[in-house]
Amino acid sequence: MEHDDEVEVLNNLPRGVALAWGLVKESQRGPKRELSIDQIVAAAVDLADREGLAAVSMSRVAAALGFTAMSLYRYVQSKDDLLLLMQEAVCQFPDQPEEILADWREGLRLYVRACIEVFVKHPWYADIPVSGVPITPNNLLIVDLALRPLRNLPLNDYEKMSTVLLLSSYARSTGMIQRDMERAIQGGASPGSFSGLDYTKALKLLVKKDRYPDLQPIIESGVYTEENPADNPVGNDFDFGLERILDGIEHYLASK
């Protein structure tokens, strides 16, 4: 009876999730089974990387593989399932050496940077809305990797998961900003439009102290437009923000 209950639980998983866990037998139909789920997902990821998420359709992916869309449906039954499998495929993080676990701050830095890299390397990733808690193998492994630097800290399970969520949220927002910057630059925007260097002189003329009493001195100093970035002790805005989050976690640990 217990085995039957377990089978029923697994059978109730969404099909895309079941595919990710290898719980669905691949179709035996089709021309000599020349296709596989991995091939389909890899073609879809390649298409999305080159042309964006809007270009991904069952027919486009099928054409890239030299098959009809109907052939794909024997393996992946919906576009939603395909999108989930695409996200799962690109979420493969390097394992963390044991020595990293001794330095929880460095372990969490590596986790955040690996998350950001996914958004930059696969710009379409964040175009797929969050639809629920991670329940696919690679995504759960990422959660596990994030938890490892917290292993020996005096945090309960709720505090550990909340810490991971905090860092994941920062990584997601930072990754999306970096992704958007990359997209704009590839589209012809000047890097100076993001640093502000293109507008330094104009802003110094336009931003007056009577209307912008606190912003004007920062523009005048050159920090706002990265004309003078020396006041940032860690080199860039994103690392500065991450270090302050880690400081907050460290302060919280000291208070326990």
Rank of each mutant, 00 (worst) to 15 (best):
N12G: 00
D127E: 15
M58P: 05
L108Y: 00
T136R: 01
L53I: 15
G248N: 10
I185M: 10
L10K: 01
L246M: 10
M1V: 12
E2I: 12
E99Q: 12
G22P: 05
Q96C: 04
P217A: 01
D81L: 11
E6D: 07
S195I: 10
V118G: 04
H122Y: 14
A20P: 01
A54H: 14
K201D: 11
L253Q: 10
M58W: 08
V120G: 09
A146M: 11
L72Q: 04
D4T: 00
D210W: 09
I177N: 12
E106D: 15
G187V: 05
A69M: 13
A54D: 15
V112Y: 09
G187W: 09
N228T: 02
Y199P: 09
A146N: 00
R60M: 15
L147W: 03
R105F: 09
L53G: 13
E159K: 08
E88A: 04
D144I: 11
L150M: 00
A230Q: 10
G132I: 13
A171T: 03
M1F: 11
L242Y: 12
T136W: 07
V120W: 10
V56T: 14
G30N: 02
I37S: 04
S169P: 06
L165S: 13
V7P: 12
F194W: 00
L10R: 04
R151D: 10
D247N: 06
L35G: 00
T68W: 07
H122V: 08
A20T: 01
D157T: 13
V143Y: 03
F240V: 00
I177R: 06
T200H: 09
R15P: 01
R50G: 07
R179M: 08
D46R: 13
G66V: 13
G22E: 05
R109D: 03
W124I: 06
M181W: 15
Q92F: 02
M86S: 05
K256F: 05
I249Q: 04
H3R: 05
S59V: 12
E98K: 02
M70G: 13
E34P: 12
R29W: 10
G16R: 00
L82K: 05
E182R: 03
Q216I: 04
A20H: 05
A20I: 00
P94Y: 03
K160D: 04
Y111I: 08
D210K: 13
V90Q: 06
I249M: 02
F93P: 08
E117Y: 03
Q92L: 07
P31Y: 09
A126M: 12
A189T: 08
G30L: 07
E99P: 04
D95H: 12
A254E: 14
H251V: 03
S71Q: 11
